[in-house]
Design a protein around this nucleic acid. Structure first.
Lengths: 223, 223
DNA sequence: CCTGCATTTTGACATTGTCAAGATAAGCCT
DNA sequence: AGGCTTATCTTGACAATGTCAAAATGCAGG
């Protein structure tokens, strides 16, 4: 299976740090912010975005209902932080592929594509949060939006590499290629994780088709 | 502007039927179900999905809080119905292009692509609802899911036409082509309506790139 | 006219997001 | 050390919401 590297991403031991602090709450939790983020991701993964309530979250972490408000302005800010952490992880994953100097370009592309899909499949609900309108329309979430755009720039970078290492110039700008590629990946991710219009088993095959299509767009076009 | 046909879809006079029944509520509203749907779409368009509360909705329509429960099992069922109506409209729009017999195939493709994007841009929040995990993971929303899949089949149909009218066989199956095409469109719609990773003005240009890419996938490939 | 059924209403309850005011502890300065 | 400041956490409270149960209302057919 091509997608089995997925196992590395999937479960993720829930909360580590000072444990759930169930018995021994020392008035000051010490690391509440991260504990809240971890627990949130856990809940979101298992119960969906709508399944996350600040009160239940607080209880899980072992603090009172309003404690989270000292670390996040409101629920939206918490969700934005969860989403931002998602983008950070995704960026890390993409960087692994891009920064590897002795890796052929075509392999980089393939890794970037498969890595993206693996992430989306491993964290379907978090992924939905990352691209939901809620956070993108909210003008207060600038931090989140910056993190996300940093992530996208990595895709542009890949196609810039293609431009530099290629003889003739590409028939589309790296930006355009990144935009179209990302669009396809995003749609594919939705297909894959929800099985909206396709069976999950088809994914590998569809992904291959997509990579072929992208390469066709890069390679010197007839004339 | 290529996307100005959008105006035909955009505003949509809010509630028509027996009006909002503000002054003259006759105990039996007569058409509550559709009035609820209309008002819901209105609210969702203006305030987002999260901005829809059953109680406010009921007040807008002029009935008591629990009246809607006799037409929709619960809030999810209402949202599913709104989403389903979205798919129905989208199908209608696509059918216009597909059923037009004396329209060149390439024009059909272009219309199907642009129509889809226009719809997504005209109804961004409803569109998000239509593809949110909430409704796709909920095993109770079978009616909604069927309507959605009917819509997708129209895309497969387009590529089947290509297969029939083409000399040599396509290098990908119509299903695969539809899946990849839809993926790209879905991602592009997200790009366009939220400006996530691109400016809205770029959309027309990106759309053209996409159409070119699709056509490259259809045309006889230099094997 | 009366009875059954669809439709709508009022009352009630638990859950939730969030604010305000107070409690607790940790760090710092002298 | 003691006291001040500040970050962190708690309890109390409130309004908004989804939804259930029971009652009210009106229509349609016998």
């Amino acid at each position: 299976m091509t997608l089995n590297r997925l196992i590395n991403l999937m479960p993720k031991d829930p909360l580590d740090l000072p444990a759930t602090a169930s018995a021994n709450h020392p008035y000051h939790h010490g690391n509440l912010r991260q504990a809240l983020l971890n627990a949130s991701m856990d809940i979101i993964r298992n119960q969906g975005i709508g399944g996350l309530s600040l009160r239940k979250l607080a209880e899980v972490v072992g603090v009172s209902r309003t404690a989270p408000y000292h670390h996040f302005k409101d629920k939206d800010a918490l969700l934005a932080a969860v989403a931002a952490q998602g983008f950070a992880e995704l960026s890390e994953l993409l960087n692994e592929a891009i920064l590897d100097e002795h890796l052929p370009l075509s392999d980089k592309l393939q890794q970037a594509v498969m890595g993206y899909l693996q992430f989306a499949i491993a964290h379907p609900t978090q992924y939905e949060l990352m691209f939901g309108q809620m956070l993108w329309q909210d003008s207060k979430q600038t931090e989140f939006q910056r993190t996300a755009k940093d992530c996208f720039r990595l895709y542009v970078k890949i196609f810039e590499s293609f431009e530099q290492h290629s003889q003739q110039s590409l028939n589309e700008s790296p930006l355009r290629l990144a935009q179209v590629t990302w669009s396809t990946l995003h749609g594919l991710a939705r297909l894959a994780s929800d099985g909206i219009f396709a069976k999950k088993d088809d994914l590998d095959d569809i992904a291959k088709t997509v990579i072929k299509q992208i390469e066709r767009s890069i390679e010197s076009e007839s004339e």
